[in-house]
């Protein structure tokens, strides 16, 4: 079995921590925007028929 490269743990600098936090918030906002986008798109594509579906 091939050897894995050695990994070491490095402390993040405060600037890197802040950058990571901002990236996480951006990802969360993007995911939220995608949820809204798919919802709005579904309503726009189906229109009033969205309520007329077989139960």
């Amino acid at each position: 079995m091939a050897e894995h490269p050695e990994f070491s743990v490095r402390q993040l600098t405060p600037a890197e921590v802040q950058a990571r936090r901002k990236r996480s918030i951006a990802i969360a906002l993007t995911l939220g925007a995608l949820v809204i986008l798919f919802f709005v798109l579904t309503i726009a594509k189906l229109g009033p028929q969205i309520m007329e579906r077989p139960l």
Partner: peptide, 19 residues
């Protein structure tokens, strides 16, 4: 608050992956 970094050398394009 840590980051996993490896000890591989800079890649072929000259970028250090730990940078």
């Amino acid at each position: 608050m840590s980051s996993l970094t490896n000890s591989l050398p800079a890649d072929a394009q000259g970028f250090n992956p730990t940078a």
